[in-house]
Amino acid sequence: MEHTESNITPAPMLEARNLTKVYEDGIKALDNLNLKVEPGKIFAMLGGNGAGKTTAINLFLDFIQPTEGMALINGINANKEPLEAKKHVAFVSENVQLYPNFTAMQNVDFFVRLGGKTHYSREQYEAALHRVGLQSSAFDKKLKDFSKGMRQKTGIAIAILKDAPAILLDEPTSGLDPKAGIEFIRLIGELRNEGKAILMSTHDIFRAKEISDHVGILNNGILMAEHSSDDLRGVDLENLYVEYMAGYMEHTESPIANALKPS
């Protein structure tokens, strides 16, 4: 964690204000979420399956409409002006699939152009693919022959090349082997250092702790707690997480959580 805290807080690149989503079947997927991600920061949403992480990301991308509140990208309401808002965001999904009949290069080319970046040369594409750790021999292979990790790398290359100030990552490390995981974390760090605001959802506690500037713990759509990485230093995050998940925080006092509570 090389970056330093500054006293002036810049305007948040990604912001959720009272973001609430209730599905038609009455399930409250997200309850009054408030979060801010400034440029050069990584916010990790931790939570189990169904905690509301993906819902939050879908709201930022206008895939679903919020019941209440708003999701802002660079100050633009993502649900009111989705086309404008989405110019400022890149996205990497969980389990990147892409077009199976296209080569990596064709996929990258299409999506990057779709992101509005039409000036890249092949060399730049190659550089980006290299940067994410894809082997040159795979550049012109069809995606259907790719492994999960390779597809994920291609997806990240697309996000990098879009060069948007905000990046949304939905479970980016799920299914990656440790080596690929480490490479990925390194890459995210680099992007942060380039000044990107990164919002990622994950259930990988260790990586979240390792890289994030802020960690939010979601359970049943509620942001149970938000901690800075400094807060978490030295805390047994795993236990904390499990406690949150078990719903301890609502009823009993957990020693770990207590330690974190602002006094």
Binding site: P82, K86, K87, S93, Q97, L98, P100, G115, I158
Partner: peptide, 15 residues
């Protein structure tokens, strides 16, 4: 949608 390409495409400003 199953490919995930729909999401990816619409993470851009496409109407």
């Amino acid at each position: 949608r199953e490919n995930g390409t729909l999401k990816l495409a619409f993470s851009n400003s496409v109407s």
